[in-house]
Amino acid sequence: MDIAAIAGLVIATASVLWMQNHEGGALGDILLPGPLVLVFIGTLGVGLMGGTLKDGLASVGQLKKAFLSKPKNSADTVGVLVKMAERARREGLLALEDAIKEVDDPFLRDGLQTAIDGTDPDELYEILTAQIQAKKAADKQNAKIFGDMGGYAPTVGICGTVVSLTVVLQNLSDAAALGPMIGAAFVATLWGVASANFFFLPVQSRLMRLSGLEVAQMELVVEGILAIQAGSNPRSVARKLESLLPPGTAVADAKKAA
């Protein structure tokens, strides 16, 4: 599990609560049920309106992915591909049919199986790249709903403030209560802005970053499969794939993985 997202959310939320306490206010003054429900539930509602029910249901899984998933180690994938290239070079492409059953990555496993089935290299490339493009489109839509909610949340918070101020205006005769009531009215705006910048927009960025890493991993796999299918020398396969890894870690990580 990559703790960056969880740690970031905890730090950001704690900074708001610390400031409230530092300024002499009580935490209960900003943890009001009304504004919290309006901002988070109301923003969720308008977010769902901008997509389909399927998009909304998928967002639950995307939240889990954003906070709990860990990017795959591309160097490990290079090691697997090099071993496959060595075996294919030594025993032939059909010898990989049993080996691919132990491969965890479904994209790599299915791609190798398609190559073993004798698919033309050009057609194989088209099939695999089409899957990558489909994933890019799906990931973009899955992240978009959080970006949309990040745009809606501040305005939803302002709506909550307006509602609270109407109550304040109806109680102008109670001068002693005006201060606390006006302060409470702006809590919705606080959480609207905070939720957008501390949660919804960062989740969108996180999902797009994870998508980019996964797509890069898939593109690495495509290059490896095509090289294996062509019968390339395993050392050449290793050098080619290492060149696609992040600079500074490519050679060491790839050899370690192998």
Score class of each variant (00 low, 15 high):
68 L>S: 07
131 Q>Y: 10
68 L>N: 04
45 G>M: 06
151 G>N: 04
90 R>C: 11
140 K>I: 08
107 F>A: 03
156 V>H: 00
13 T>D: 01
74 S>I: 10
63 L>N: 00
129 T>S: 13
120 D>T: 07
77 T>Y: 05
108 L>T: 02
76 D>W: 05
18 W>H: 12
63 L>T: 07
80 V>C: 09
16 V>G: 00
102 E>V: 06
83 K>G: 08
120 D>I: 07
94 L>E: 09
90 R>L: 14
93 L>M: 07
77 T>N: 09
68 L>R: 05
130 A>E: 09
91 E>W: 10
142 N>G: 05
69 S>Y: 00
136 K>I: 01
77 T>P: 06
136 K>D: 03
38 L>W: 04
77 T>E: 06
102 E>K: 13
65 K>A: 08
64 K>R: 13
116 I>W: 04
132 I>S: 05
123 E>K: 15
100 I>Q: 04
98 D>W: 11
73 N>Q: 09
148 D>A: 12
113 Q>I: 11
38 L>F: 06
71 P>V: 01
71 P>T: 04
143 A>M: 04
33 P>K: 14
101 K>F: 07
144 K>M: 07
18 W>D: 10
13 T>R: 03
91 E>I: 12
126 E>F: 15
134 A>G: 14
96 L>H: 07
127 I>P: 00
67 F>M: 01
119 T>R: 12
118 G>W: 06
25 G>T: 08
44 L>K: 05
46 V>F: 13
45 G>A: 01
66 A>L: 01
70 K>I: 07
152 Y>K: 01
17 L>R: 02
60 V>D: 12
61 G>W: 00
108 L>N: 00
136 K>V: 03
60 V>Y: 14
124 L>C: 09
63 L>R: 00
97 E>P: 03
21 N>E: 13
58 A>S: 14
34 G>T: 08
53 L>M: 15
23 E>W: 01
134 A>P: 12
37 V>Y: 13
140 K>T: 13
78 V>P: 02
98 D>E: 14
104 D>R: 11
63 L>Y: 01
13 T>I: 13
37 V>N: 10
26 A>N: 14
39 V>F: 02
120 D>N: 14
104 D>I: 05
26 A>W: 12
102 E>G: 08
36 L>G: 05
151 G>P: 02
88 A>R: 10
133 Q>M: 07
64 K>C: 03
121 P>Q: 05
